[in-house]
Write a protein that binds this DNA or RNA. Structure first.
Lengths: 239, 239
DNA sequence: AACAAAGACTTGTAAATACAAGCCAAAGGT
DNA sequence: ACCTTTGGCTTGTATTTACAAGTCTTTGTT
């Protein structure tokens, strides 16, 4: 019995479409989105459904709504930095970010994750483990290790993580979204592995983040360890 | 003619009530909120209205909803760690934190602040400058430099900053509160000054934060540069 | 005792409808 | 030419209804 891949509910589909269009500048910054009424006829849903999609876009900063006028496009939100729940991809802007898979997704056993304790269930199912190297303008900036519980994610290990946000995949294909989490930040000097990846000399300072993310799926956490070479790019964020 | 105070729409009223109750621990962490149906009969509104209020609480982290179960109370969201607007004091907990003034508040000229550009006004009035060293259990952990515009803060330079949060002073004495800001984070190796303060060897990795905070007083920004020795204590935060 | 099914809850999604409130331009009067 | 008003658009709020989907207990069967 194969896992049925769920179809996204209409309001999420509309959200994804509009989000993509803003990203691709089909709708450009400063312009107005089609009115809620128009969108509802276009996508053959009712206004409340359209509004749900728009609420989300507004919440994330893609648009600003103004009563009596319309939905003003603000563009792709930038600089939510390490606070971003969408991961480092959107944190630095996808413009010149390339991703190289250092270690492709594979199932593993685990007993803890970057200092965060695991539940019994998490330990039992094991994890999916992968390592990626992100580069800005060809220069390696992030090296990250991600671990997530190996449950109920059909074909996940075969999905292409190159230049795609893990969070986009989880959201679109599995309806899993990060809703919060905890992290700690520290400074270390690059070990041999990091020296190789970042192509730096011994003693080079690196920012290390250990994160545990809560998601919309109860009990499903995403653990990641991110190393940043902040020599040329620093981690920027607003709050 | 006095300004007519608009009444909050029902869904916002419910939001405020529930928020207050969570804050006052009428509803306690881990417990379940009354069901949407119950809340709707209690407050004499329909379920969609209640849901709007709950959506907001969920968005802000007060509750987590789970289909089929209910709305789990998560408590008052604990800021965003080192991104907390309450400053480093609450970031690590005040338990064993001592403060030593390395350089007492004094008026200075400035033309920029840790990479953040200044407005003309800010440049003209100059700044108040001070340096502090924070210690956990006697060991130096934070070294921070703070700069703020030298306007309209009577007797500020004479105030005692030892073991007191700058933010408390600003809030209580001048009704100024931080409402947001931006920062960047990077890893460096300790220079001579930091080596002395932290009592570490050359090459020791240190986290550096440059922050600009917006406040409730328009045009009044707080600039600070924080160095953290994360050898023993890492920067922890939830979001 | 162990397992399976049913039922009663919960939240999630969607439609159809109604009116309020804000913005703006066009029409009309001065 | 200027100002005011009107009407038509926009988003904001709320109700009512309906069903889907997830959780958990209770019941019934094996």
């Amino acid at each position: 019995m194969t896992e049925k891949e769920k179809e996204l509910p209409p309001y999420k589909q509309i959200y994804e479409i509009l989000r993509q269009h803003i990203h691709d500048e089909v709708y450009r910054e400063g312009e107005l989105l089609p009115s809620e009424h128009e969108l509802s006829t276009i996508h053959k849903v009712t206004r409340p459904t359209v509004r749900k999609a728009l609420d989300r876009l507004q919440n994330e900063g893609y648009i600003a709504k103004q009563q009596g006028k319309g939905s003003i496009i603000k563009g792709v939100p930038k600089g939510i930095g390490i606070l971003s729940l969408r991961g480092t991809t959107s944190a630095v802007g996808q413009s010149n970010l390339e991703t190289r898979i250092v270690c492709p997704p594979e199932a593993r056993a685990w007993s803890e994750a970057f200092g965060f304790p695991l539940t019994k269930t998490e330990q039992e199912v094991g994890c999916i483990y992968f390592e990626r190297l992100r580069m800005m303008n060809g220069k390696p900036v992030f090296f990250d290790i991600t671990m997530l519980p190996n449950i109920n994610l059909p074909r996940f290990t075969r999905r292409n993580l190159e230049n795609k946000s893990l969070f986009d995949i989880l959201r679109k294909n599995f309806q899993i979204e990060a809703i919060g989490g905890e992290q700690n930040i520290l400074a270390i000097t690059a070990d041999e592995k990091l020296q190789q990846h970042f192509q730096v000399t011994p003693g080079h300072p690196v920012v290390q983040l250990n994160r545990k993310l809560e998601t919309t799926r109860f009990g499903f956490h995403i653990y990641s360890q991110v190393f940043c070479n902040t020599a040329e790019f620093s981690l920027y964020g607003t709050f």
